[in-house]
């Protein structure tokens, strides 16, 4: 963890090299500590945790709203009115601009650990290799195992290790784009950290988030982790070759996903056996076509895929 502020940057590594801090402030900040460490007016009241005894569920984060009470005479109010994710969104906008300028179509693959993201990627690369340039950015807390699997296919891969971090953010992707020579008219796959919660809120500058759910997980994952399914533009239901051996109810899983995200397209695939993968390739082609028609994107990729 970074000792300046406690952020996770200190352990973030790209291909094993430390990443520069995003603390870019050129202006030296002056600050005064509070006069009293125990000002009763500023004591933090613990927000309640409500217990739902009928269902044995604890609900966190149900604390009441704070009241607005400007205090001492020297104090003044400063309006900020900015999204907390403003900084990330600025980096994401820079990434999106860079990708558009270089006609790179980027997809952000998100899922829980073990759903088969890397296997889907390897299979996708096998089906598309040689037709146009592909690049991959891998995100994991530790190791470069996934990047090694991608590189074994002959496609360039850059590994981001987030250390204690639980997601990729747009600043990391910006750094990766600077370090990684990605050819114009490429497809860029970003494999996010295996985590069905945190990556949902962080725009990386990608064209689409693609969520992967596997048949070995529960059908109710979309209800349990709604933010990710709400943020995604496509759901891949992977490991469908195992369905005969499982009790997984495909229709129920899709109906749950549609409760969270009405109209979310769902493709049933098996990355291992290759079934359904052509529909996934067709989806990439169609979205590339749509992006190219909308503005800036890879006519070259589109014609190759189409």
């Amino acid at each position: 963890m970074c000792t300046t502020c406690g952020c996770g940057i200190g352990q973030t590594r790209i291909n094993g090299q430390s990443m520069p801090s995003r603390h870019r402030s050129n202006t030296r900040l002056r600050y005064r500590p509070m006069q009293s460490a125990h000002d009763p007016a500023h004591e933090q009241a613990a927000a309640p945790v409500t217990a739902d005894h009928t269902t044995d569920t604890l609900h966190f984060g149900t604390g009441i709203a704070g009241t607005h009470a400007p205090g001492m005479s020297q104090s003044r109010m400063v309006k900020i009115e900015r999204d907390i994710l403003t900084k990330n969104n600025q980096f994401a906008a820079e990434n999106r601009r860079y990708l558009a300028e270089h006609c790179i179509f980027a997809l952000n693959l998100v899922s829980s650990p073990g759903s088969g993201k890397t296997t889907v990627l390897v299979k996708t690369i096998e089906m598309l290799r040689g037709r146009f340039p592909i690049a991959v950015i891998e995100g994991d807390q530790q190791t470069d195992h996934d990047a090694a699997r991608i590189r074994a296919t002959g496609v360039p891969a850059l590994q981001i290790n987030t250390g204690k971090g639980c997601h990729l953010d747009a600043h990391m992707i910006g750094q990766a784009l600077q370090q990684m020579p990605i050819r114009d008219n490429s497809l860029l796959f970003i494999e996010n950290v295996g985590n069905l919660v945190c990556p949902s809120g962080f725009d990386l500058g990608e064209a689409h988030k693609v969520v992967i759910l596997s048949a070995t997980e529960g059908e109710d994952k979309p209800l349990k982790y709604p933010d990710m399914f709400h943020a995604a533009d496509l759901m891949l239901l992977n490991k469908c070759d195992l369905l005969p051996h499982l009790t997984f109810d495909v229709d129920l899983a899709i109906s749950y996903a549609h409760r969270i995200h009405p109209g979310l397209p769902v493709l049933q695939i098996s990355a291992t056996l290759g079934s359904g993968m052509q529909a996934w390739i067709d989806w990439i082609s169609a979205e590339c076509h749509r992006a190219a028609a909308a503005s800036q994107l890879p006519q070259h990729i589109d014609s190759t895929l189409g």
Binding site: C7, G8, T27, L29, V78, I84, N88, K164, C166, F202
Partner: peptide, 19 residues
């Protein structure tokens, strides 16, 4: 865990405003 990143983002916006 991403609340750590959010807290850091809040501090950055505050420091920008301080300048």
């Amino acid at each position: 865990m991403h609340e750590l990143s959010l807290a850091e983002s809040i501090l950055q916006l505050i420091e920008d405003a301080a300048v």
